[in-house]
Design a protein around this nucleic acid. Structure first.
Lengths: 160, 160
DNA sequence: TATAAATGGACAGATAGTCTGTCTAAATAA
DNA sequence: TTATTTAGACAGACTATCTGTCCATTTATA
């Protein structure tokens, strides 16, 4: 079930797939799978763009600027997502007790439900992938990607 | 040079990073790097969206429907990209000799230049990553991702 | 303490890149 | 020969992003 089809393979014969395309394909597969199933689970109004908020919101609530900074988008864009999810009933916005300018974005009960479901489905999709390539390779894949992410992070903020 | 900064790390403490996020981070890094440098190389008007066309166009030229099918977008969306790149001088559109309804999208000289440069920069970005994690791990990463892609492809089009 | 600077967010407007729906012309099948 | 399918064009809509400007509040400074 949840038959996610797959884009065409090779462009120019004799050209090796770029690392980017090797990363992109499974990523897009996972995203399609997770958001497809999310819809089937009763959250059809949650779209991939919303993940910029859902990924970074904290249980105590988060301010728009913080969410924007973590998601690497402008605060206006994040405000748009907040407004959208607020209208859909997934978040509420309350005044920040510590800062009169600020507001806190908080998950509603439904928001928490979608958050949990997203984690659940992501995990399930990963298990599915692990079945395809084997648990050992999945562990290795995770380890290497984790290393790479960390190395890029330090490279990005650190040395020239 | 080309200091690409990196989004925040963890959401909820005690939550493992999803496979999706592990794939996404390096992918977005690569994309930012490649398109940033592409701009510096004299192609500032090429945007990531154009890659849907550039990735799949063939040297003999390709029809819009074929490009759309490979890129997994509607033909209208692909037509928009074709029109855009045509206006920018990267592709030309000629009538298909074998089919009076169809047209062939072909890379201009400048289009071929950008194509070559994209491959070059992608390769360079991969080498950069390989330096960070080591050549062995990069080879392993490639192997596993290739397996995964292929497995997902056959799963997607094949068994339920 | 009074004022200047920085910060969190709101509002307005623009744009890119995607979609659906409808249409024509040409090719293919019945 | 007629019906169906296919390639693409056109119109319209919408999502998710951006820039620019503004206000209110907080923080730093003179």
């Amino acid at each position: 079930m949840s038959n996610v089809s797959f884009p065409g393979a090779q462009t120019i014969p004799g050209t090796k797939a770029t690392l980017g395309s090797l990363l992109r394909r499974p990523y897009e597969y996972l995203q399609a799978k997770v958001y497809g199933e999310l819809s089937a689970r009763g959250f059809p109004d949650i779209r991939p763009a919303h993940s910029s908020l859902l990924r970074y919101i904290r249980p105590e609530g988060s301010r728009v600027v913080d969410l924007a900074e973590r998601a690497q988008i402008t605060k206006q864009s994040m405000a748009y997502l907040v407004g959208d999810l607020e209208g859909l009933g997934y978040v509420t916005v309350v005044p920040d007790p510590d800062d009169g300018r600020a507001k806190r974005v908080m998950l509603t009960t439904r928001g928490q439900a979608v958050w949990t479901t997203l984690i659940e489905l992501s995990l399930a999709a990963e298990v599915n992938c692990a079945e395809l390539i084997g648990a050992d390779d999945m562990a290795t894949l995770r380890r290497i990607l984790q290393n790479l992410s960390q190395a890029l992070e330090t490279q990005g903020s650190g040395a020239s």
